[in-house]
């Protein structure tokens, strides 16, 4: 083969091998690590899978926060004003966690339909609302407008 062409072939070959390895890695990692968001209504209807890491969120219901006195266990409910979802968590809640605030939790649903959260996210700007929660609230508003 012509040396210039040979060189080009090798270069392209190396690029292709590296790229396909990277794409394979990306596809695998993506298939393992994406977390779908479900609203309390979707979960109440049983649309969310159990024992799979998902995200869920809504407004923290007033007066729903229960703390254990001896451990760091805490439980609370979130709502999209249609249904409520109970969330249990062990650890320290973020500073902006408050009743009436929009939050997103990541975790797994158990058989009781309770979300066992591994992470609770409240955002760092009070005016800011997680887009997922905003949309879930809007959908539930529309759903209640047309019974």
């Amino acid at each position: 083969m012509h040396p210039v062409r040979k060189k080009r072939m090798i270069t392209i070959g190396v690029i292709l091998v590296l790229l396909s390895a990277a794409i394979g890695l990306v596809m695998f990692a993506l298939s393992q690590n994406i977390n779908l968001f479900y609203s309390p209504t979707q979960i109440a209807k049983g649309e969310a899978p159990q024992q799979v890491t998902i995200r869920a969120g809504g407004m923290v219901v007033d007066g729903s926060v229960e703390r254990q006195s001896e451990t760091l266990d805490v439980a609370f409910a979130v709502t999209d004003y249609q249904h409520q979802l109970r969330i249990e968590y062990r650890g320290i809640l973020p500073d902006l966690f408050r009743e009436g605030q929009g939050i997103v939790a990541q975790g797994k649903l158990d058989q009781r339909g309770v979300l066992i959260a591994s992470e609770v996210l409240a955002k760092h700007d009070e005016e800011y609302m997680p887009p997922e929660v905003t949309e879930a609230l809007e959908q539930s508003k529309q759903a209640s407008a047309q019974p």
Partner: peptide, 18 residues
């Protein structure tokens, strides 16, 4: 297709080896 988030494990798994 729904609302998703891509977690840190994705980035760690892909970014690390490369």
């Amino acid at each position: 297709l729904g609302k998703i988030s891509v977690g840190a494990p994705y980035f760690n798994a892909v970014f690390g080896p490369i």
